[in-house]
């Protein structure tokens, strides 16, 4: 049962990674210049009662490690602390804004996968001349930072054509949210589309050159059948891996796009919290981001391993 071992190992590594990551995030509070109290209050002067409340809330009189363990225990119960700026539970704020960010990243993922992989397969199966166009286009797209893409989209589709709303998240209904998130999702996906298209193209090209595909061609199997049966499936592993990693990295880039479009998401709030030194808020949101990011990485790892016949073969032997 190689896969039991495989998953057990992954799980152990996952837990260790999250523990260390949470420790690093917790340390952020300690590293901050000045006392933790000052960091928590964001430099505001507090009444003695507030100081006492904060000291009690964060057990500031306890030794460092004890405080970490207490904090982690709270995290497991969904308690991420209190935002000083908002005078509200961090977890409440996160829950309130999560929908926007999740929708944004999901929309961008769909755009990236559909357009990126289609572009990649199309140019991978074509001849040289169209490849040059794709290569040039993807080279430029890959170099467009999300906020520059946002500027371009705002200029063309909001200011000039007026097709899409420019800023905000709309009237609160989900359809209006999606409508407002179309431009941000496109801005978020531009560079990633290029990355996924290029990797797809390279994987397809490599697969087309391999022996068993050449054999299939020489045996007269129809080309579309070869493409479907051999090429796309075998190229799948690297495509899944790179698409997955690219999408996972969007979690952080979303902060930039949300700021550019004044979208009320987790990312834009993380940026505001960082600017106003609302450390508890920064800790809470980054912990969520890192956890999602790490979980996605592990999921990609597992999917890639499951797709790869070599892993299975190696596992069967070991």
């Amino acid at each position: 049962m190689w896969w039991v071992r495989f998953f057990a190992l992954r799980l152990v590594r996952l837990v260790l990674t999250l523990l260390v990551a949470s420790f690093i995030i917790f340390c952020a509070l300690e590293l901050a210049p000045g006392s933790p109290l000052a960091a928590l209050s964001g430099g505001r002067t507090l009444s003695p009662e507030a100081v006492a409340a904060l000291t009690a809330r964060y057990n500031l009189d306890d030794p460092f490690i004890v405080r970490y363990v207490t904090w982690l225990g709270g995290v497991f119960q969904g308690d991420l602390g209190v935002s000083i700026g908002k005078r509200q539970d961090v977890s409440e704020i996160i829950l309130g804004r999560a929908l926007t960010s999740v929708t944004l990243v999901l929309m961008a993922s769909i755009i990236i996968i559909v357009i990126g992989i289609t572009l990649g397969i199309a140019s991978g199966l074509r001849d040289r001349s169209s490849n040059l166009v794709t290569l040039a286009a993807t080279a430029v797209m890959a170099a467009i930072p999300a906020f520059v893409g946002a500027t371009l989209l705002l200029m063309v589709f909001s200011a000039t054509l007026g097709w899409f709303p420019a800023l905000g998240t709309g009237d609160g209904s989900f359809t209006d949210l999606v409508w407002h998130l179309i431009l941000p999702a496109v801005a978020l996906s531009i560079a990633s589309i290029a990355v996924v298209a290029r990797v797809t193209r390279a994987a397809i090209r490599e697969e087309l050159g391999t022996e068993h595909v050449q054999t299939a061609v020489s045996r007269g199997i129809p080309y579309p059948a070869i493409v479907r049966r051999h090429v796309v499936r075998n190229a799948g592993i690297s495509i899944v891996t790179v698409s997955g990693l690219t999408i996972a990295s969007l979690i952080a880039v979303a902060a930039v796009v949300e700021t550019a479009f004044a979208t009320n998401g987790l990312g834009s709030y993380l940026v505001q919290a960082a600017a106003s030194k609302d450390i508890a808020m920064v800790q809470g949101i980054s912990l969520v981001f890192v956890t999602v990011f790490v979980l996605m990485n592990v999921a990609i790892d597992v999917i890639a391993a499951l797709l790869d016949p070599r892993t299975r073969a190696a596992g069967a032997v070991a």
């Binding site: 952080a252 960082a274 609302d278 990485n297």
Partner: peptide
């Protein structure tokens, strides 16, 4: 596990 931008935002906060 730490995307570059996220780490930079945390650093800016601290």
């Amino acid at each position: 596990g730490f995307p570059g931008i996220l780490l930079a935002i945390v650093a800016a906060a601290v």
